[in-house]
């Protein structure tokens, strides 16, 4: 499912003293099946962007097309859009409220008006695909660890079978192990279910490792849009807006400064190590 944003503007509290323009002339095209990372410091417009995409906020001006249809068209089925573009909020696990984990996951599909059998089927499917342990299905959600709660919350959105899944900092507050598990899970869902993933994150190391396309937001505008390899060489500009490149990017640039002919586009530990070895080897041969 493709999403196109055409010159989208969004302001909070327009016409009052608290007027803030959260998005300025944002144009983006999101084709089917991409794994996209959105980064930007607090207040850069990332969350506004995600909420526009599933119709929770309405653009002040500009248009949004989902599968070629204008979502601001009077006849457009906004409710349907929210089922197709699933949004997992930051700290979604704070919103678990049913008596059991299973019931909590049922909530979304139940609201879609599906019959009980289909609802339960989807809940099973969703809980299974997030790797949630079966013995906990009918336990209350309150005793779970942070990582497990987060899985239930993600399953709740997955059960609505969205075509696009937007995750707003899905790993905030989790430890490294929990973080790797959740990101591994998201990456697996992307591969196996073929859905479009939009991952909002603060961690450059994480996005470098997982996403194929990176959108950098700054003050309500798109600052960079490209593969991590294309974006991270702009680390100086990223720093100016309160972001940073992954640690290895800096390492490669420093080595370059000392004359070692390494690829400054390396963004992960494995790439960097392999490239340093290659560069040292090459030097040896030249001699």
């Amino acid at each position: 499912m493709s999403i196109i944003l055409d010159k989208v503007n969004f302001s909070y509290s327009e016409g009052t003293a608290y007027h803030i323009q959260a998005l300025k002339d944002v144009s983006l095209e999101i084709p089917d099946g991409q794994f996209i990372g959105v980064i930007g410091h607090t207040g850069s417009g990332k969350s506004t962007l995600t909420q526009l995409m599933n119709g929770l906020l309405r653009a002040t001006s500009g248009s949004i097309y989902v599968d070629g249809e204008d979502i601001y068209d009077r006849d457009y089925n906004m409710k349907e859009l929210r089922h197709r573009v699933g949004l997992v909020f930051q700290y979604p696990d704070h919103q678990l409220f049913e008596t059991t984990n299973f019931e909590d996951v049922c909530f979304g599909p139940k609201n879609q008006g599906l019959d009980r059998k289909e609802v339960e089927l989807r809940a099973y499917e969703a809980l299974r695909s997030v790797g949630f342990p079966e013995e906990l299905y009918f336990q209350p959600p309150f005793d779970l660890s942070g990582g497990q709660k987060r899985r239930v919350a993600i399953a709740g959105v997955l059960a609505m079978k969205p075509k696009v899944l937007i995750l707003d900092e899905p790993t905030a507050g989790l430890d490294p192990a929990g973080r790797d598990e959740i990101l591994g899970l998201v990456s697996k869902m992307h591969r196996e279910l073929g859905i479009t993933i939009i991952l909002v994150s603060h961690s450059m190391e994480d996005v470098a490792r997982y996403v194929e396309r990176l959108i950098v937001m700054n003050r309500g505008s798109v600052m960079f849009d490209g593969t991590p390899k294309e974006v991270f060489p702009h680390y100086k500009e990223l720093e100016e807006v309160g972001l940073a490149a992954p640690q290895v990017t800096y390492l490669m640039h420093e080595l370059r400064r000392f004359g070692l002919n390494v690829d400054t586009g390396a963004t992960t530990v494995k790439e960097a190590a392999a490239d340093i070895l290659r560069a040292l080897q090459n030097e040896g041969q030249r001699k």
Partner: peptide, 20 residues
């Protein structure tokens, strides 16, 4: 123990294992 290690330490470790 599933703890995070600084990236510089990880790269160093990879290089050391490759014989540097």
């Amino acid at each position: 123990h599933r703890l995070d290690v600084p990236q510089a330490t990880l790269v160093a470790d990879e290089l050391r294992r490759a014989g540097l």
